[in-house]
Amino acid sequence: MLKIKNLMAQIGNNQVLKGIDLGVAPGEIHAVMGPNGSGKSTLGKVLAGHPSFEVTAGEIFFDGKNLLELTADERARAGIFMGFQHPIEVPGVSNSQFLRLAYNKKAEGLGQDELDPLEFDDFIREKLKLVKMDPAFLDRSLNEGFSGGERKRNEILQMSVLEPKLAILDELDSGLDIDALKVLGEAVMTLMRPDRALLIITHFPRILETIKPDYIHVLFDGKFVARGGGELAFELEEKGYDWIQAKANPGDIDVHPGGLDG
């Protein structure tokens, strides 16, 4: 489904990604872990098509399409969803209006019927239940005045509306209390299907108790330095990233060379 080869990217003069290889097959859950500043969010934003980052080498294919030739909105309509670490506020744009427009753009792309406001109202009520969000949030401006946790809930609400093939969730747990994390983690798992995949970006292993990854990739200074199965999360929790850093010789800690052929 997703194939990344030798991806390098920079912002300004700062080379952030220094040769990333990653394969994700349908039905798989992958986690990218790593210390702060290692480039996790950058990887997500590059996949989503953020214009500030320049890809200097490598390639990304998604469902056989060259992702680097697609704009951010084309990638989204192709089925990629990025749940941001810090979702921004968009004052004046009503949450419900935005969600309906996003849904209808996707429906249009798939040749499906668009929903009018009343039909969308019924549709969104179900999604709100899934993420346990108060309908009052629909009438507010997109993320305006939302707490960190409320923004994350809103991100997963958007994900549930768009039902992406590949969801990249960046630090879903930041700003969430234990209960909210459980609700959202379970919502994400409810949306999982054999033909969909997840890429969970996280600094802390906590989220991986609800969203159990098949593969874990450890990012360090713009490169993957270790890969393994889900159990690697616990090792990281115990020993911290210093343990990886000490052994940071790519290939050294290849517990399972997972998912490279996705």
């Binding site: 989503a48 098509g49 953020h50 214009p51 500030s52 704009t71 951010a72 909105d73 990638r75 989204a76 309509r77 969803f81 990025m82 941001f84 979702p87 921004i88 968009v90 004052p91 004046g92 744009v93 009503s94 209006q97 935005f98 427009l101 996003a102 753009k105 996707k106 792309g109 401006s141 958007q158 768009l162």
Partner: peptide, 29 residues
């Protein structure tokens, strides 16, 4: 705002729709 545009585009809104939505938001107040 470029970040706002990107956020809307990342949800599948083409450049034009994203711009119009932001302008409508600016006017709505």
């Amino acid at each position: 705002n470029q970040d706002e545009l990107f956020y809307l585009q990342s949800r599948g809104l083409d450049m034009n729709s994203a711009r119009n939505l932001l302008l409508a938001g600016f006017s709505a107040e």
